[in-house]
Structures are given as C-alpha cells and as structure tokens.
C-alpha cells in the first residue's frame, strides 16, 4: 500500500513540475513574440516618418541630393526586407539607422533648417523612434535570451523538447561601429 502511495506522490510531483515548466516556457515564448511586435511597430513608425522628413528638408538641402536619395533608398529596402526573417530585416534596418545618423549630422550644417519648427519636431520624433527601436530590441533580445536559456538548460530542455519549443533568433545590428552614437562637434 505504502509503495503505491509513494509512486502516486512521485507522479503527482512530476506532473506539477511538468505543468510549471510548460507554463513558464509558454510565458517566455509569448513575451518574445510580443516584444518582436513592439519592434515592428516602431520600425513601421520610422518608415512612415521618413517621407515627411524628406519633404520638409527638400527645399533647404538642395546640395545634398545624394544624402537624401540614399536615405530614401535605405528606407525602401528596409520596407522590402520586412517579413523576410529577423536576420535580413535587422541588416536592412541597421543600414537605415546608419543613413539617418549621417543625414542628421549633415543637417547640422543648415542653420535655417534648425530654426524650422516642423523639422525640429520631426527630428525629435525620429530620434525618439530610433531610441525606441533600440530599447525594444534590447527587451526583445533579453526575452530571447531567457527563452533560449529555458529551452537549452536542464531540466526545462526536456519539456521544451517534448512540446517542440525552439530557440529564438537575436536581433543583432550588423557592424559594431553602428552601435556607437556619433559625436557631433559644434566648434
């Protein structure tokens, strides 16, 4: 009799551990998905803001056609890269970020532009969207790290294997140089 109780007890404990591990894995996976949609929202917002920006600065920056065109091109390829997987999209968006920082560095040379309220508002919006993308990426990568730890570490890897949980993909920017924010000198 006692042996039976012991067996039942062990089974119940194992079942509880299984439930808890499974729920924890589902929670982590949902967080990864949710934080990815956060990045997506911000990337879309950036795509929407750029045409306005180009429209606003066109009159002021007549001699910078090349810069403006490269921003527009980078935007187009970033929009096209959407839905082609995390790695591809990260690459295109990373290039767009680089183009934008270069563009704002160039814009510093136009005092008239810096007095334009519309431009200042757009600059604030784009800078902030840039930050939001960065923070959303940070949160996404943290979530992926947590999920991956769960999927690969013992004992949760057993549960993950049983129910087909997969490791997530990190959102990495391509070149390490792009991670640095350029210093703009005013002297």
């Amino acid at each position: 009799m006692i042996a039976l109780y012991v067996v039942i007890g062990v089974v119940v404990v194992l079942a509880i551990i299984l439930f808890m591990q499974y729920n924890s894995l589902v929670r982590q996976r949902n967080q990864v998905q949710n934080s990815w949609s956060q990045i997506d929202v911000q990337l879309k917002r950036r795509h929407d803001l750029i045409p306005n920006l180009i429209e606003t600065v066109k009159g002021y920056m007549k001699h910078e056609r090349e810069t403006l065109e490269s921003v527009t091109n980078a935007r187009t390829s970033a929009v096209e890269a959407g839905g082609r997987g995390v790695g591809q999209q990260a690459k295109a968006e990373g290039e767009l970020s680089g183009m934008l920082t270069r563009f704002f560095a160039v814009a510093e040379n136009y005092p008239d532009l810096k007095a334009n309220q519309n431009f200042l508002a757009l600059q604030e919006e784009l800078t902030s969207t840039e930050n939001k993308i960065g923070f959303a990426r940070q949160f996404y990568n943290d979530s992926v790290l947590n999920l991956n730890n769960k999927v690969q570490q013992f004992p949760s890897n057993i549960v993950a294997g049983m129910f087909g949980f997969k490791v997530g993909e990190f959102f990495e920017l391509e070149a390490p140089a792009e991670r640095e924010v350029p210093k703009v000198s005013f002297t």
Binding site: N131, K132, A136
Partner: peptide
C-alpha cells in the same frame, strides 16, 4: 511636451 512623452514611452518599451 513631446520630449518628456517620448522619454517615458522609450522607458515603457525598455521595461516591457
């Protein structure tokens, strides 16, 4: 105050 709003929004995203 768009800047303050953006700052709070950024941190909301960073903290999840």
């Amino acid at each position: 105050h768009p800047k303050l709003f953006n700052t709070v929004e950024e941190m909301t995203i960073a903290s999840g």
